[in-house]
Structures are given as C-alpha cells and as structure tokens.
Amino acid sequence: MALLSEQDQRVVREHLTAIQQPVTLLLFTQTFDAPETARMARQALDELAGLNDLIRVEEVNFVLERERAAKYGIEHIPAIVLLSGEEDTRMRFLGAPAGYEFMSLIEAVILAGTTDSRLTPESRALISAHVTAPTNIQVFVTPT
C-alpha cells in the first residue's frame, strides 16, 4: 500500500518542483536481518523519488560496504544520507522517515536540490560569525 495518497502525491510533487539539481538518497541497510524499519524507509524513499526525476535512491549495504558507512559516519541502520549531486550535504536521517519526519525529509531534499539554506539573514550572520569548529546537531523526534 502506498504511504502517500494521490492527493498527497500531487502536493509533494508540486513542492518538489523547487529542486534544480540531482539529489541522491543513500539508504544504508543490510540484506540479511534488516530491520522492518529499513523496508519502510525504502518504500518512503522510493515513493519520494517517484515524484521527481532529479531524485534517486541508492541502497548501500551497511555490512559489506563498511568503507562507505565510515566515510559518511554511519553507525546505525536504517540511515539516510542526502547528497546534492555528488556532494555530501551533511544532512542525515536515522530511522524510517514516517509521519512528521517524512515532511522534514521532503524539506531536506529540497535543501539538497537547491543551493539556498533558506535561513534568515540574521541566522546566516550568526552562523558565519560563530561556527568555527565541527558542529554535530542531532534532533530526536518521534513519528506521530
């Protein structure tokens, strides 16, 4: 069963027209004993990719492709890494993107598919002035 209704698909497709450059969603999972959430994540990503030709999904085997997992700092599955073209956007989703998280994923895909961070001038100025070292932000959410 599709996660997105036909009406949802129309709305999301319209929203995704903002994308100007290819976005790759790297889904880290495993072939054997993959968690159920990995299958859910794959379905969500496939439905999203089906709505815009610039979005594609690539599954990465977490067990067999340790180097790639290490390259992107992936320690848990399912995990989604967003690439803008070939470039790592440093945006990640851990777990199946269901509920509100799916909305956040759509926004992240649009950020990856464009070059504008969409932040206010004030926020940009603060970031430019104060981010001087690697900064790792983890936002914990639940699907409801």
């Binding site: 440093r90 990640r92 989703f93 851990l94 956040s104 994923l105 070292a133 932000i137 936002v139």
Partner: peptide, 11 residues
C-alpha cells in the same frame, strides 16, 4: 546547508 562545518541528523 549554510556551513560546511555543520552536520545535522534527524534521529
């Protein structure tokens, strides 16, 4: 997206 030193994860 704004700064290359920042990584953001939704968990």
């Amino acid at each position: 997206r704004e700064n290359a030193l920042v990584q953001a994860s939704c968990v």
